[in-house]
Design a protein around this nucleic acid. Structure first.
Lengths: 179, 179
DNA sequence: TTTAAAAATAAGCGATCGCTCATTTATCTT
DNA sequence: AAGATAAATGAGCGATCGCTTATTTTTAAA
């Protein structure tokens, strides 16, 4: 409902009717509307982050680790396209700061270690974490967005194939590896 | 209002009260709530795109042109931080497809020409437009998001300085330039 | 089978939603 | 100054909002 009609357009009564339960039932499990949205967001985001760390180890070599994360994210998102749109929507909503802290706590540690390892091993240039994150993952998320929203820049819809993903990953690796 | 309270939380009556006019007045200038939101979005987005093309020419050398666009975007957004959040919020809202087509029509042509020129001149590797866009601009937007939302990944808030922007731009250029 | 706790419900509260209409106020033309 | 047009308004419509309460149904222990 939130993906298709937005946060406005999402109502407790509507949801209850669609779910075939009484509005009152929802308030047994959730404090209020905002709590419901946040808890759902936490669960979807948590699942996404767990999937992105599947078979990942912060002691991996940099290229192997980054490729693993790209593939994990891409495969999770192409298998759950609704999740992408939901997470992105929430990520840019005014409720985001109530979600981010709780979710990224443990995730941050693993990623931080991975980056520090890679820098120590001279497999990754030295740079602030935010710059690393922006170069390493923002392109992937943009590609996924192009993929899920079907049409953006003229001509035919963009499909996130293995080829285009590998191409983008190669570019990112070229940017991040020491000369 | 939309940035701070979200699309839900944004109401016509509230807006009229805050603006010191009658709700009926709004309907002289806008068809309905959605039309109002879309028109405001169009105006803010249009301004952003115009600013991003200031002093830009699609016949510029690739590095010069890309740097120009990065600086234009960054300076516009740091001077109008509310616009960033608004545009991003709308970009991930369910109303986005009603906005995107109208806005990016002319913009697409200029950018397309710029990219084609650069590839012809061997200043840019050959790649699909979406991949180019994802690598060339997504990192910048992510950095701006880090900057505006103040705190994301632990430690102290990230500030988008000239240094960190130049660093990120250099990485992106390294990724996109032919070997 | 009885009984207490837990889960779910229908009905509807006051508040606010998006929006309209009959009327008044401001602006412009002659 | 008079009359016509445009702009703006206050009041409030029906619908929906988030949410609660008194009651019934379901579950499970004794």
């Amino acid at each position: 409902m939130i993906v298709h009609e937005g946060l406005d357009g999402f109502g407790v009564n509507k949801l209850a009717r669609a779910a075939g339960v009484s509005p009152a039932t929802l308030y047994i499990y959730f404090k209020d509307r905002e709590d419901l949205i946040i808890q759902v967001t936490l669960r979807v985001t948590q699942t996404m982050l767990e999937e992105s760390l599947r078979d990942f180890d912060p002691d991996m070599h940099f290229e192997e680790g980054l490729r693993k994360q790209w593939h994990n994210r891409a495969s999770h998102f192409t298998r759950n396209p609704l999740d992408v749109e939901f997470i992105e929507k929430m990520r840019y909503s005014h409720l985001y700061n109530k979600v981010s802290v709780q979710v990224y706590a443990s995730f941050k540690d693993v990623m931080g270690k991975f980056v520090r390892n890679a820098i120590e091993r001279k497999e990754l240039i030295e740079l602030p974490f935010e710059v690393y994150w922006s170069v390493a993952f923002a392109p992937l998320y943009q590609l996924i967005k192009f993929h899920t929203q079907e049409k953006t820049f003229g001509h035919q819809p963009f499909k996130l194939t293995d080829e285009s993903m590998e191409l983008a990953l190669q570019l990112v690796l070229k940017a991040l590896k020491p000369a």
